[in-house]
């Protein structure tokens, strides 16, 4: 089971939890499992075409999945996935330094 961290504004749509443990081999499978369990999250994360909304940033541990294999990025049981809205610029402007800043 990988751990998905739920950002504060989405917690009311995920049973008030700050994290959810779910099974899945890729980011896509995990987010599918998440939105299957908590249907109200779907419209916040995906657009009408079923794509992740453009301001939704997903990190595998500290890597932005845009710089990995996007939604096909593979996930291990010990991994932590963060969903962070692109407020105040969620994405680093240096492609070689694409970690979520500590």
């Amino acid at each position: 089971m990988a751990k998905i961290l739920i950002p504060t504004p989405l917690r009311p749509f995920a049973g008030g939890q700050d994290s959810v443990d779910l099974p899945g081999a890729t980011i896509r499978e995990l987010l599918e499992a998440l939105t299957a369990q908590y249907g109200d999250l779907r419209k916040h994360l995906y657009n009408d075409e079923g794509k992740l909304r453009s301001f939704v940033n997903v990190y595998l541990n500290e890597e932005d999945i845009r710089f990995l294999n996007k939604e096909a990025t593979e996930v291990k049981d010990s991994d932590t996935i963060s969903i962070v809205p692109s407020i105040a610029g969620g994405r680093s402007w240096q492609p070689w330094k694409h970690r979520l800043c500590r």
Partner: peptide
């Protein structure tokens, strides 16, 4: 917030 852009 930590996710502020590098420019900022």
């Amino acid at each position: 917030p930590k996710n502020a852009s590098q420019e900022r």
